[in-house]
């Protein structure tokens, strides 16, 4: 029974990692950028929800504002910071992403101070605990898992079955060839950022409902771990990000539950190193040959 509870904890944590990892993976797949500002967009999402709820006391409005806020912010960052560098070396893009990450953290600190703030989680997802046998499962855990899975199914449909999804896959495969085939590269890339940050917005609400304290560094460790999950699954691969997210979540909980909690973070990054040594492309990544 204890094992089953821990398994549910792992699925819950894993589904949040998976949602965030998807954002990393999709952006990497399309413009080869490790978007290190992704975690901080989630942090900003937490504040958007906090501020909207404080002003309106409407949980639905808070959720919508978070998602819209994350999307607008991510698209703005893409237009202002990343687009002018599309022809620049990839390292410039990476450094810009780190710069944006620092900018967002400090902006949040300037606007909302460095103090931790309480997040109105029970107003968004009521605090209800179900007792099944000896198991106690809270509603927020069930909602987290259900919403994550639903988002992933919707994303798979979007990418595999729609015209825009086809364009995304084409751009990811070969940007120049896709352009020659008449695909609008700019709008496809923007669309990818919209989808990635939409998922980040959902992830932000779910994360803050589980861990209801918001502060300006909320996104850093979450972002790093989701990045590890994306690499583990094979960066650029959508099912890979999901598999990686769940794998990291479950491994963390398993490690902690046997009493090695002090080593959990070290374990996550050790997994990354081992994976890079054995199979650099991750579980589901395509091996890419360097184009000459």
């Amino acid at each position: 029974m204890l094992f089953l509870s821990q398994l549910i904890n792992g699925l819950q944590l894993g589904s949040i990692y998976a949602l965030v990892a998807l954002g990393y993976s999709m952006v990497y797949g399309i413009i080869m950028l490790l978007n290190f500002a992704h975690g901080d967009i989630i942090m900003m999402g937490g504040y958007f929800a906090l501020v909207t709820y404080a002003a309106s006391s409407n949980p639905l409005l808070a959720v919508v504002a978070t998602i819209v806020g994350c999307v607008v912010l991510a698209v703005a960052i893409e237009k202002v910071a990343y687009k002018p560098l599309r022809q620049a070396p990839r390292i410039s893009l990476l450094i810009t992403a780190i710069g944006i990450s620092l900018f967002l953290q400090n902006a949040a600190q300037l606007i909302w101070t460095a103090n931790s703030r309480a997040f109105p989680s029970t107003s968004i997802i009521p605090s209800i605990t179900f007792k099944v046998g000896g198991l106690s499962i809270s509603l927020s855990v069930l909602v987290t898992i259900a919403v994550s899975v639903a988002s992933m199914v919707a994303l798979t449909f979007l990418v595999q079955k729609t015209k825009m999804g086809k364009a995304m896959r084409a751009v990811s495969e070969d940007t120049e060839a896709a352009q020659l085939m008449g695909i609008n590269i700019n709008s496809t890339i923007t669309f990818t950022f919209v989808i990635g940050s939409f998922l980040a917005g959902i992830g932000s609400v779910l994360y803050c409902c589980r861990y209801p304290v918001v502060n300006p560094t909320l996104g850093s460790l979450l972002g790093l771990k989701a990045f590890v999950a994306a690499v583990l699954g094979g960066i650029g691969s959508i099912p890979g990000a999901v598999v990686g997210g769940f794998a990291i979540g479950l491994a963390e909980v398993l490690f902690t539950s046997i009493g090695l909690s002090a080593w959990t973070d070290a374990m996550v990054f050790a997994v990354l190193i081992i994976m890079l040594l054995i199979k650099p492309t991750g579980f589901m990544g395509r091996s890419m040959t360097e184009k000459v």
Partner: peptide, 13 residues
Amino acid sequence: FSDGATDFQSQLT
């Protein structure tokens, strides 16, 4: 737990 952790679910379970 390690410093900066936010998830204590498995310890608390």
